[in-house]
Design a protein around this nucleic acid. Structure first.
Length: 566
RNA sequence: UGGGGAAUAGUGUAACGGUAGCACAACUGACUCUGGAUCAGUUAGUCGGGGUUCGAAUCCCUGUUCCCCAGCCA
């Protein structure tokens, strides 16, 4: 990063970075900056997590600090190794590095237990025999204070004994909990004697059957941060109400005390972002798994063809704040195109082929023409593409009766075939139903390479592939998963699933691509000229090419068509 | 008469008592061997009402609206 850019960024710090910068200035943490990304391994990461990842890892990188990857694996009922693996892969793919600082909350269970015993000894925690239902009723409501549990004033010795027996597995699930003794009349419900431990005879993905009590988030999270000497514990807005409790535990224990800072989670138009809803889409087979290219998951975006750089730049662009907002999905696409435009090799591919025969071109021979690999990148070089008498062009690039502003091929009209020749349409061959099956053109040999020596211009340039050289491919086109900007805005009695876009996936099986693509590898990214950005789907195998459309190019003609219809 | 947050163009986001700026979107136009990219331009904003001040998005008062909290989830 150059100095000029760095200076620019320092001028416009978001509120979290401002706090970090101020703390550095005042030497609050002895010059340290330590953040962490603490996912619960109970689902796949999505673009919303990317915002948090880029914030935490980004701050560490910018301020010369460190960021840990820590699994907050305190609930074995929901967590699985599969999720741990995917999260590690995703954070890595996004380009972040935690070096040797991969941590698990479950590794701190013994220390947490000992601290809990300390609290019991101080008379600040007690074992409660109330049922879950009773605890809820004793808690009171938003407007009414709660009342003390009858077990609240058990002698310390009895609490110690009971808590140890809880740990030793002597009680059934749900029969007892350990609670902090704070204030049942506290206006903040989180402070009304929150549960610290519940009994769960469940096997943990990492600690196995070693524990049958598991710490609750509020108890565990601050301790994890404390153990790792985190300076800035960044989390989402809904935890703002929990901060007093975060602080209370750490203060009562008298241990190292990080600062919790809350920011607003990401919302985006035309998609859902909650793990619960994404899980539903997967389980109810409304998409083809977590890595379905229509999903906002990191794995979905990766399979769709997104680059890590595009996602990171998006996260930088959206900023950080304390109020709920919904980012326009178009901004993500913008960041995507901005990156792919610079980095994607250009190729020619025809999605909906229409045969074009050049009637005055010799039958036998073919020629090799020079094509530029990437006009945005001089170092990308050129390649040869085969040209012959019979080609495929895009069906949409020909119209028998062209409307206004349609510049492409039509009877009698001359256009350029990219990197090849000018051709003029002489006629269209039709089947019995009147559908155009083939078009005939003549070419001007003097325009080889794509320029006319006499200086004449054409309105349009078409992409094409040589029929005899083309490789076959399947191409999957995607649209928004939902038809509404806000999928949750459903009619009475329906939920977000009623807003699923039935046309979010279109599979084209008869596509023709230039021969250079024959040995493209999984997840390789290309720009199909005039069509958009495409990447190789992992389904590609033994000569069967499958591409995903990552994004279309900006399409002025489509816009005009839309206006003409309206 | 619960508590905690928050309000700046259509959408995001700056301005830290001194010219309301930037990006996306939308719309013009220029250029172009991608109707791409690029470039130039246009439309459009401080939640309402009071106050303090030479001067308020910013400070004070007041109202309004929105979000979060009653899991042995995180």
């Amino acid at each position: 990063m150059n100095n000029e850019k760095k200076e620019n960024e320092i001028e416009r710090l978001d509120f979290v970075r401002q706090i970090v910068a101020d703390d550095l200035e005042s030497d609050k943490w002895e010059g340290r900056v330590a953040t962490r990304f603490p996912p619960e391994p109970n689902g796949y990461l999505h673009i919303g997590h990317a915002k948090s990842i880029c914030l935490n890892f980004g701050i560490a990188a910018e301020f010369g600090g460190t960021c840990n990857l820590r699994f907050d694996d305190t609930n074995p009922i929901k967590e699985e190794q599969e999720y741990i693996d995917s999260i590690i892969a995703d954070v890595k793919w996004l380009g972040w590095d935690w070096q040797d600082r991969l941590y698990y909350a479950s590794d701190y269970f013994q220390q947490m237990y000992e601290w809990a015993v300390d609290l019991v000894k101080k008379g600040k925690a007690y074992v409660d025999d109330l049922t879950g239902d009773e605890i809820r009723r004793y808690r009171g409501t938003l407007t009414k204070p709660g009342k003390n549990s009858p077990y609240r004033d058990r002698p310390i010795e009895e609490n110690l004994d009971l808590f140890e027996k809880m740990k030793n597995g002597e009680f059934p699930d749900g029969s007892k909990v350990l609670r902090a003794k704070i204030d049942m009349a506290h206006p903040n419900l989180n402070m009304r004697d929150p549960v610290m431990y519940r009994i769960l005879h469940a096997s943990h993905p990492r600690s196995g059957d070693k524990w049958c009590i598991y710490p609750m988030y509020d108890w565990a999270h601050g301790l994890e941060d404390s153990i790792e000497k985190i300076t800035h514990s960044i989390c989402t807005l809904e935890f703002e109400n929990h901060r007093p409790l975060y602080d209370w535990f750490l203060d009562e224990l008298g241990v190292y005390h990080p600062q919790q800072i809350e920011f607003a989670r990401l919302n985006m138009t035309y998609t859902v972002m909650s793990k619960r809803k994404l899980l539903q889409l997967v389980q109810e087979k409304m998409v083809n798994g977590w890595d379905d290219p229509r999903m906002p998951t990191i794995q979905g975006l990766r399979r769709r063809g997104y680059s890590p750089a595009a996602i990171r730049n998006f996260c930088k662009t959206i900023g950080v704040n304390k109020f709920n907002s919904t980012i326009d999905a178009a901004l993500l696409e913008y960041c995507l195109r901005e990156d792919l435009n610079k980095t994607s090799p250009r190729v020619m591919a025809v999605l909906k082929p229409l045969k074009l025969v050049i009637t005055n071109y010799p039958q036998g021979p073919t020629e090799e023409l020079d094509a530029v690999n990437n006009p945005e990148d001089e170092n990308a070089g050129t390649r040869k593409i085969p040209f012959s008498r019979e080609l495929y062009i895009e069906r949409e690039d020909f119209m028998e009766e062209p409307p206004k502003k349609f510049y492409r091929l039509a009877p009698g009209r001359e256009v350029r075939l990219r990197y090849a020749y000018f051709v003029t349409c002489t006629d269209a061959v039709k089947d019995a139903d009147g559908n155009v099956t083939e078009i005939h053109c003549t070419y001007d040999p003097a325009t080889k390479g794509g320029d006319a020596p006499d200086g004449r211009k054409v309105k349009s340039t078409l992409h094409w592939v040589s029929a005899q050289h083309a490789a076959d491919a399947e191409v999957r086109l995607y649209d928004h998963l939902f038809t509404k900007e806000n999928p949750d805005e459903a009619v009475e009695g329906k939920d977000f699933k009623s807003n699923i876009n039935p046309n979010s996936l279109e599979v084209l099986t008869d596509c023709k691509v230039e021969p250079s693509l024959a040995d493209a590898k999984s997840l390789d990214r290309f720009q199909f000229e005039r069509l958009g950005y495409f990447s190789v789907d992992p389904d590609t195998a033994d000569g069967k090419l499958v591409f995903n459309r990552t994004a279309t190019l900006r399409d002025t003609w489509a816009k005009i068509q839309k206006q003409q219809k309206a």
